Amino acid sequence: MEQQASEVILATQAALSQASQLAVQYSFSIVGALLLLILGWTLASALSGWALTGLRHVRGIDETLASFFANVLRYALLLLVFVTVLGQFGVQTASIIAAIGAAGLAIGLALQGTLQNIAAGIMLLVLRPFRVGEYIETSTLSGVVLEIGLFATELKTPDGLYRLAPNSTLWNVPITNFSRMPTRRFELKIGIGYDDDVELAEKIMRGHAEGDRRVLSTPKVETFVSELNDTSVVVGMRYWTQAPDFWPVSREIIRQVRQSLKDNGLKSGPNS
């Protein structure tokens, strides 16, 4: 019994000694890991903040895009810190990096459509084919841009409806931006009879355009005979306005020209 008690005491002492050695050994690792975490977290936050501030001062960089790049930098640094901390405890970081890479590949394949929208959103924010407040049109949709996000773009249609368009559908198609250029040209074509006075029709049309202060003097208002068809002589007119005045001016001049042609005995009809 005494021999067994001695063996238990010796085993206990050996276990306590080994535990104390392990505690001393890993205490340094734990302290180092905590210091790395604190330092890495602070450094990642500082660098992402500096990156965000710097990107905000770069011309053409959208706020959403600046925040995205700053967050990517921050989480990349935090991931590096996490791998480094695991290395402090003897974990094979090469296998961790390989596992992270495999997981990233699997996630990328699973979220292929989403990542495509993100890539398209980044390109839209960098190249800026349209901005918030501009009216755009594609083969499938049209509307005023409300917000450009990383995944989708919000629009308000001409009839007042809300539409959410995935960015990939806006990046891979031709886009017509009706608000980007400061001026626009309007072309009016009206058919008159073969017996009507073409010069009088041109004078009437030109007079209404030149008499509107919203019509630009340069380039000058241009009138011409556009074509001759079976039923009428098509008289055309071109003039330029500021982009916001395009629709109000065109509608008013169409109404005025039609009434003036009627008052002067010129019959306006189909232009083709």
Rank of each mutant, 00 (worst) to 15 (best):
V83A: 04
D159E: 07
K156A: 12
R206M: 11
I97Q: 09
T140M: 08
G113T: 07
D197Q: 06
V91Q: 04
G143T: 00
G133T: 01
Y162T: 06
V144M: 05
P158L: 14
I148Q: 01
G90W: 00
F151E: 11
R213D: 10
I192H: 00
S168M: 08
T114V: 06
G121C: 10
T114E: 04
F178D: 00
K156N: 09
E187V: 03
F151T: 15
T176Q: 10
I204T: 04
G191C: 03
Q92G: 05
S179W: 10
P174V: 07
V144N: 03
F186E: 02
D159T: 15
L200V: 04
A209L: 08
F178L: 06
T153K: 04
R131G: 15
D197A: 11
I100L: 15
V126E: 12
L109D: 08
H208Q: 05
E154S: 13
M123E: 14
W171Y: 08
I204N: 01
I100V: 10
I122W: 03
T176E: 13
I148A: 02
G149S: 08
E134K: 08
G121D: 02
L109Y: 06
V144Q: 03
P129G: 11
V173L: 12
V85A: 01
A94N: 09
G149Q: 04
L155E: 00
G133W: 01
V132N: 06
T138P: 00
S139F: 01
R131D: 14
Q88S: 02
N177E: 10
E199W: 10
T140A: 11
G160A: 13
L125W: 03
A103Q: 07
S95I: 13
T114C: 05
S179P: 15
P174G: 06
E147L: 02
L150F: 04
T176D: 06
I122Q: 07
R185A: 06
P129Q: 11
V145Q: 01
S168I: 05
I118Y: 14
T153Q: 13
Q112C: 13
S168H: 11
N117W: 10
G211L: 13
S142V: 02
R206G: 03
G133L: 03
V145M: 01
P158H: 11
K203A: 02
I107P: 14
P174T: 07
V198R: 09
R206I: 11
Q116S: 13
L200D: 08
G149V: 05
G101Q: 11
P158M: 15
F178S: 02
L200K: 03
A165Q: 09
P174E: 14
A201C: 12
T153E: 11
V198A: 15
G104N: 10
G143V: 00
L124W: 03
L115K: 14
S142W: 02
N117P: 04
G160P: 03
Q112K: 09
T157C: 11
L127F: 13
R163S: 14
G191A: 04
S142H: 12
F89D: 00
L111W: 06
G104P: 00
L161T: 05
M205W: 01
V83H: 00
Y162H: 11
G193L: 08
L111A: 12
E147H: 05
